[in-house]
Design a protein around this nucleic acid. Structure first.
Length: 195
DNA sequence: TGATTGATGAGCT
DNA sequence: GCTCATCAATCAG
């Protein structure tokens, strides 16, 4: 089965739509000649200047400027001693993004296990900090265009999930606007960060 | 299942 | 200094 790289048009959609439609897609990390692949099973939407929990709520700064740029780019940031990765969405000037919270490891599992220093496949990518460790994602990968086929990070298309396979619930690990139902994950998937 | 705590880095004021 | 979109370990029920 031939899979296509998701195009700019996909990321220019409404952030909540992108967050839901990213579920089931293939997240690809190119490291030299090797490739690590995981299926996206959990995401969260961050709605920019109207969303208190978003990094862009306070307005543009040096740290979050990529959020204000073009859609379809990575936004990598450190939180405590881990990294998290977002994909920017919507038009330039709208600082919205989708946080990738969990993957289902597909390819390169041995490499991920050595990077994470564990043999437990269940524990490789079941959280935003964990998956960045498993895929060797750091600040060097900030502001990368994920629609260019020679990028270190790419996202490939896959069949769209039906509405009943997507669970909608509240976001995790934030202190503001925590009541909003902006977290999405694949029903019955065992690789999500928590139920 | 939930609450708590400590390690820890980057960015902001 | 302070905040924080984390994780792992621990303890209580």
């Amino acid at each position: 089965m031939i899979r296509e790289i998701l195009t700019k048009d996909f990321y220019y959609q409404d952030t909540i739509t992108v967050a839901q439609q990213l579920l089931g897609k293939y997240f690809v990390r190119n490291i030299g000649s090797s490739q690590l692949i995981g299926k996206i099973v959990e995401t969260e939407a961050y709605l920019g200047i109207t969303d208190e929990a978003s990094h862009s709520f306070i307005g543009p700064t040096n740290r979050n400027k990529v959020l204000f740029g073009e859609a379809g780019h990575t936004y990598v940031h450190a939180i405590h001693r881990y990294y998290c990765i977002d994909i920017t969405t919507e038009a330039s000037g709208k600082p919205t993004s989708v946080l990738i919270r969990a993957l289902e490891p597909i390819k390169g599992i041995e490499v991920m296990e050595s990077l994470r220093q564990t043999n437990n496949t269940m524990n490789l990518t079941s959280g935003p900090g964990k998956l960045c460790q498993a895929l060797q994602i750091n600040k060097d990968l900030n502001a990368i265009d994920v629609t260019q086929k020679n990028s270190a990070i790419l996202i490939f298309d896959n069949q769209l999930l039906s509405d009943e396979d997507i669970i909608k619930t509240t976001r995790i690990g934030i202190s503001k606007a925590k009541e909003l139902p902006l977290r999405f994950y694949i029903k019955d998937n065992i690789f999500i960060s928590r139920t």
